[in-house]
Design a protein around this nucleic acid. Structure first.
Lengths: 136, 136
DNA sequence: ATTTGATATGTTATATTATAACATATATGT
DNA sequence: ACATATATGTTATAATATAACATATCAAAT
């Protein structure tokens, strides 16, 4: 049993582990090029190496992409791997990102989707504004 | 009383009108560069002309940005100008975008935000998947 | 009507984000 | 060991977005 496993119980590759590690250690979202810079000394030379790892990690639910920032964060929860809905509150001032799980909202989205026959594969919910500390 | 007005009852500028027009006439989202191409014959030469108009139109609530597509759509409703929440269902296959208004969900997001002291200025909700027709 | 200040526009250049295409290497199953 | 799939390295380029600055237009006050 290796340290990181995805839902298919397959170990992550070397590059996936490195990308996940820098994201996990960061307390703010990172862009693909930011990750690339952090991993130059570890053999990363070009964007595709980062983007390919990110693509898989997002598939596995271990990383989320913040569309509004073109940036990426490690998932705060384990249940995202199980298809759970994730939402994000992004502070415009300090950059803090909080992931949360709007359980009921999920049902309402499903209701709308069901009523219209829309089969949702992915749901993006992002709030941007000011966190408590920055709003004082 | 001019044709287009925003919530401050100020008429749109020439460029804003042209960008809104092409978006309104399009039955699919357009990228900034797509809009630029459509407006070349009308004096548009460079990206900033498009991006500046889009920025204002988004502020006014007359255009929405689809973060997941890096594209823009004219708002389907009038109430978006009043700070209403908008959500989008984007079909991966045919590209159709449906805007809808998840009234109750808005309350739940507010509840979470209130409980955490987060002051949300903007909310992005995007579902991507297959529309009814494409899911047959 | 003219000045003034604010807003909008035009333009060039460049920054940022993302992917195509192809060669090589590593892992996996038989 | 062989065949096949997956992952990696690399170069080049595409697609998206903004900085910076010059000029023009608009709106209000004198």
């Amino acid at each position: 049993m290796t340290e990181h496993e995805n839902k298919t119980t397959k170990a992550l590759t070397k590059n996936q582990v490195m990308v996940l590690d820098v994201l996990s250690k960061s307390n703010a979202p990172l862009t693909a090029y930011g990750i690339l810079d952090l991993l130059r000394d570890d053999g990363f030379r070009a964007p595709p190496q980062v983007y390919r790892a990110l693509e898989k990690l997002c598939e596995f639910g271990m990383v989320h992409r913040l569309e509004g920032l073109n940036a990426f964060v490690a998932c705060s929860h384990s249940h995202c791997q199980n298809g759970g809905l994730a939402a994000f509150a992004i502070c415009e001032k300090c950059g803090e990102v909080r992931e949360f799980t709007p359980a009921k909202m999920s049902n309402q989205l499903e209701e709308w989707a069901n009523s219209k026959g829309f089969a949702a594969k992915k749901t993006t919910i992002e709030l941007s504004g000011l966190c408590k500390a920055c709003n004082q």
